[in-house]
């Protein structure tokens, strides 16, 4: 019995180790582990940080990257009031629906209208081809799920954003590429997006590269997992309930089986 459990545990560890080591050849440098307010069973969002992260996204990243699963109405979840959210939405120009005459363009230009809460956050480009054309053939990926779509998650995203460096001697850089040791292959088409004081934070926080990287990564944790707080809170209640119930079931089991022995 004990032998079984030890074998099973050893094997399970082996497999999970193996499964997580898929990034063999060409994998980037292992990103350093950081602490995030969302980690652990009691993880929470820091809404002040999320608002700063939104500011970094909308002022820096949104030039090339979409977050196409997020609606303006979602912004009330990170601490904006209803009025502030509507203001943010209205500041964006969204392609208007066809008017009564069926027109979508006027004088060759797309007719626009102010954004509404039920609109998705405005994308920088109307389609992938336009995105590539504006970025030397490279397609800036959508960022909504980036934290879940990469091994290393938030640690990786932060390391990438804050980890640009000069290429070591001997490394030949391709045209238009930047060196980043955390990116698989170490060369990527995105130049370092964050610069000291690149953003003037609304809450007055000093906008160092590390601060902005942390804030925008925390924001991307939220875009990827907006249900995180609810999920963990519910999880605690469910698990506590189950532990109590299972304890009771065990006691009943022992009672019922007692008269057999």
């Amino acid at each position: 019995m004990k032998k079984t459990l030890i074998t099973a545990l050893a094997a399970a560890l082996l497999v999970s180790f193996g499964v997580s080591n898929v990034m063999a050849a060409g994998a980037g440098k292992e990103p350093p582990k950081r602490t995030w307010t969302t980690q652990g069973p009691f993880g929470k969002f820091d809404r002040a940080q999320l608002k700063r992260g939104w500011q970094v996204y909308s002022e820096v990243c949104a030039a090339c990257h979409s977050i196409n699963q997020i609606y303006y109405r979602n912004l009330v979840e990170i601490g904006f009031s209803d009025a502030e959210m509507k203001e943010i939405a209205a500041a964006a120009e969204i392609p208007a629906e066809p008017n009564e005459d069926g027109e979508t363009h006027k004088d060759g230009e797309r007719i626009m209208r102010p954004g509404k809460p039920f609109d998705k956050v405005k994308t920088p480009f109307p389609n992938d081809n336009a995105a590539r054309a504006a970025n030397g053939g490279a397609l800036p990926p959508d960022l909504t799920l980036m934290v879940k779509a990469r091994h290393g998650g938030a640690d990786y995203v932060h390391a990438l954003l804050a980890g640009y460096s000069n290429a070591p001697s001997g490394v030949e850089m391709q045209d238009g590429m930047s060196y980043n040791e955390y990116f698989p292959g170490a060369q990527l088409a995105m130049a370092a997006p964050l610069a000291e004081d690149g953003v003037e934070y609304a809450d007055g926080t000093k906008a160092t590269v590390s601060q902005m990287a942390e804030d925008v990564t925390a924001f991307l944790i939220w875009t990827a997992e907006p249900e995180l707080e609810d999920r963990k809170r519910m999880g605690i209640k469910v698990l506590l309930f189950l532990i109590v119930l299972t304890g009771m079931l065990y006691a009943v089991k022992r009672k019922i089986w007692a008269d057999l022995h």
Binding site: L245, L249, K255
Partner: peptide, 19 residues
């Protein structure tokens, strides 16, 4: 004792099922 344990376990299970 067994009855109380049984009744309370059944009750907690029922609550769990409803939740």
């Amino acid at each position: 004792k067994r009855d109380f344990l049984l009744v309370s376990t059944v009750t907690v299970s029922a609550v769990g099922a409803a939740l």
